[in-house]
Design a protein around this nucleic acid. Structure first.
Lengths: 269, 269
DNA sequence: TTGCTCCTCACGTCACGTGAGGTGGC
DNA sequence: TTGCTCCTCACGTCACGTGAGGTGGC
């Protein structure tokens, strides 16, 4: 009793006392983190107290996000190295937490269905369009347009959307959007298209279009994608574009008509 | 111009506009998340606008921590299913953030070198021992003992350590610890051991040992491990145990002598 | 012609999980 | 004898990364 005999645990017992799985212990042997203990007559590994302590420390480091490759070094590092490594680990954990918190915010927005990969401002703008009574179809088209633009130039989007929201206080803009919305489901021979084209041509004439800027021009390919996504998605819109051209308008690529903002950043036709 | 032609992007261009890698796009095809687009004359995949939008949405969901297996369902889910799934994702993200924050705290403690897998209270207690001038060797032995106990019964440790801290206000306890510390590096024939054994026997006699409790008894194997880790680690201690037995003491397994708390939870021998 | 992109396998990463097939211990 | 643990391969997981070896496009 004066010299207590150290217990020789099997791998399952050792794993249990350390709070890890049997497979994890074998894995640590394979990775060289924990030396293979002696075997008994049956070929079973037999673990001592120090092995359990090492297992607990390996588990703690690993759970703190330290890759096993570094755990090996750290187990036998002096306090100086250890402190440096710990500082690095803390920075990584901080970054990871910030990343997840950002994603949580994104996911919360995402509950609305729109917020997926879109800034809050854009989601609010889309809700504004809904509030004006515009159809889900046109809102979806707007949303997809903004998805494309946001993926490309995320930083500019906030400014652009501010301009759009302001424009939406102008009753003329609202009338234009409603007219375009009405056109979306028209057949090309629908007589309403002629009336809508007349209205739009008149509205466009009143609007001098001074908001064009070229801070971050979108490249031609992206503009073509946006056009395809907007005009190309509706036979009514395609025909409306033709009618507007007949009235001297230079095409859908003008800002107020497409419902996306891409064209605002090209000089009017 | 009235009917803009949709651009047909190569895989590299598509990946670029969506902000993912070329390999990721091929992977999404393989997983069935994104249908294979048509090929051109050279066998190159050619992507349209909707593909880019889908890629952006896949990326957003994936980055939010949604496994690709679920991304597939969610891409075409109705708003109800989507909302439920989003709520689940948010819960997972919250858990993950909490887990990482806990680990950050652990890692911060870990900077001291001790805090690895130990509660703050234990670290403070170890610092208290250092403050009393005890050697690093005995502090390390204490630490490893607490590591073993904490891995086993983490909830009880806080109470136990409170009792230990209180006991350390008793000068008798401090003298015992210092005597035991002095013995650690003694050869078995060191004459000081006799003196230390006399002192300890005297101290033990004064101490009635009323703090034993059995709230969460440690199993025999764990106690044996603790004994091996403490007494077994020093020839001086092993001999001191013998000398104490000669003085009628029942062994190291009595609480005040080992420096670990395990034995406090067994009835004195 | 050079350099870049594209193509299809197919193995590597990371920390283990999970059988597959067999043997020892109580 | 049954059931549990142990043993050693060795493939599977997850979301791609990274060559390997070859061809098309500008």
């Amino acid at each position: 009793m004066a010299t207590p005999s150290a217990p020789q645990l099997t791998i399952g017992e050792a794993a249990g006392y350390a709070g890890v799985t049997v497979r994890a212990v074998r894995h640590y042997h394979q990775r060289g983190l924990l030396p293979e203990p002696p075997r008994d007559a049956s070929g079973y590994r037999r673990y001592g107290t120090q092995d359990i302590i090492d297992l607990i420390r390996i588990k703690a480091l690993s759970q703190a996000g330290v890759p096993l490759a570094r755990v090996g070094e750290l187990l036998h590092a002096d306090p100086g190295e250890f402190a440096v490594a710990v500082a690095e680990i803390d920075v990584k954990l901080q970054e990871e937490i910030r990343r997840l918190e950002t994603h949580r915010l994104a996911v919360a927005q995402l509950a609305s269905g729109d917020g997926l990969a879109l800034p809050v401002e854009v989601v609010d703008y889309l809700d504004l369009l809904r509030g004006l009574g515009l159809s889900e179809r046109i809102v979806t088209i707007e949303r997809d347009g903004w998805l494309l633009v946001t993926a490309q130039v995320p930083d500019q989007v906030r400014e652009w959307i501010a301009g759009k929201v302001e424009a939406m206080h102008d009753p003329m803009f609202i009338r234009m959007y409603r007219a375009v919305d009405e056109a979306i489901d028209c057949q090309p021979d629908d007589p309403r298209l002629e009336q809508i084209a007349d209205d739009l041509a008149s509205l466009f004439g009143q609007y001098s279009g001074g908001e064009t800027d070229a801070d971050a021009p979108l490249d031609d390919t992206l503009v073509a994608m946006l056009d395809a996504q907007t005009i190309g998605s509706s036979a009514g819109w395609r025909h409306l574009a033709l009618l507007l051209e007949q009235r001297g308008w230079t095409g859908w690529t003008n800002p107020e008509s497409t419902g996306t903002n891409a064209s605002e950043h090209r000089a009017p036709g």
